[in-house]
Nucleic acid binder design. Structure first.
Lengths: 256, 256
DNA sequence: CAGTGGTCTAGACCACAGG
DNA sequence: CTGTGGTCTAGACCACTGG
């Protein structure tokens, strides 16, 4: 039977669907526009809702769509370039109220993996600081910063026991140490419940986990574990924090 | 310990399952060990296979599991740290046969977004080079390197029209230019069919897309789009390419 | 309240790896 | 060939958002 170039090779339906939807997004939809609901779309394409959802999930993973329960599916704006500076910006950021905003700071214990990086015993008390990073009014990252008590020995004992005030004091002490270098890694993860809440996502949402080791005074002074929303963020490194690639083409970079 | 009572809040089953499995992986399984098959596991936990799969997908996303059609589900080794050097290593890597291994090189046309970064017209001919990066005998990344013809004017016209030989010649010419700087971004993506094949994954598999702009001679000499397997890789930056974080840092952090 | 996306079920068949 | 994970279906109910 000379099947007339039927589409049904062995490409999964959801994959083909994703392609079709992707092209439709490029041509027929504007950023922020809401799509028909899932049942409607599934019916329109003649597939089960689960299959349609598989395609939508992929597109959301790629930052093309945004889905919110009770609301609907909207066309996502291009990913935001977020600078993960090679410099000391975020180190002092909490102090100057720049990118990172301290939320809380308590004494606690570092997870085993973090303790290993700090070179401390797992039971050694550390300051555990919570910081949030905003961009354009949107929370894009949640961080846990682990600072061994031994890194900031001069912290006044009469400090507030916790809270944003204490956070600023810890950061100030860290800043006085100076920063000799840092060491960073990026990997894919899924948001824990607490991070998800800060980032306004559901638990399990894909995130980029940036682990940074800060060196000062000949040792590891602190370790930061920052989780960035993978759907909306593009991490940028290096000199110019304004790389411009995404699903949308735009000239930038005038030879000024 | 048996099932206690207050487990049944409104935590999704797959989320709870994931937690249980994760702990089981830590305590009862060795790296490389194969798990019972999905139907068996689903029955054992009293859930539908689809629900069990949702938990497995999360664990695979976090690099804890590896699943292969026709084979089974195995416990994954810790993610391998892959250095995304801040230096010129990979620039010359293809020449010295270091990390990146050139596979092919043809004349072609850059995608619109890449052309924008190159500052060239979308129709301008560019060398499109394919490179693969291996670590411990495993392909961890596939790259497309776009080099405008104008960046390597001295390339002999009598070169091979394509292939790995031509790739090396283009890299040699690039190397002669010298490297003034670079600009990098990392974002989450899903593997295209061709990349997936090189990386021995299924299309749509999660990848970390590293886009690098190389500056030389006062302009953008080349653009690289490298896709790293997100399940097995942890990208490292900075001085020491040997960050030591092991796996998960689950931090339940329950407010009293 | 009605409508949305999120979760879950109990099946079915397919593509692939391996003996 | 058998057994595995991958895809797909047609339902159901739940949790959340908004008016």
């Amino acid at each position: 039977m000379g099947t007339t170039q039927l589409e049904s090779v062995q490409e999964p339906k959801y994959w083909h669907l994703k392609t079709v939807l992707s092209e439709a997004l490029d041509s027929d939809f504007a950023v922020g526009e809401i799509l028909p609901n899932e049942r409607e779309l599934a019916a329109r394409f003649g597939v089960a809702r689960a299959t349609l959802r598989q395609a939508l999930e992929q597109l959301e993973l790629e930052g093309r769509l945004q889905r919110r329960r009770g609301v609907g599916t909207t066309v996502a704006p291009p990913r935001v370039g977020v600078a993960v500076s090679t410099a000391q910006h975020e180190w002092t950021g909490g102090v100057s109220g720049e990118a990172w905003q301290p939320v809380d700071c308590t004494m606690g214990q570092a997870p085993a993996a973090v303790a290993a990086m700090l070179g401390t015993a797992p039971a050694e008390p550390v300051h555990v600081m919570r910081r949030i990073r905003d961009t354009h009014g949107q929370a894009v990252a949640a961080e846990l910063l682990y600072v061994p008590a031994s890194s900031v020995p001069d912290l006044a004992a009469l400090d507030a026991p916790s809270g944003a005030f204490r956070a600023r004091n810890v950061l100030r002490e860290l800043h006085r140490l100076g920063l000799e270098g840092q060491d960073r890694s990026v990997e894919l993860g899924s948001a824990r419940a607490d991070d998800a809440k800060e980032l306004d996502r559901l638990p399990g949402a894909p995130v980029l986990v940036v682990t940074t080791r800060y060196f000062a005074a000949g040792g590891t002074a602190a370790v930061s574990v920052a989780t960035y929303r993978a759907d909306t963020c593009r991490l940028t490194f290096g000199d110019s924090g304004a790389l411009e690639i995404s699903h949308d083409e735009r000239r930038e970079r005038r030879a000024s």
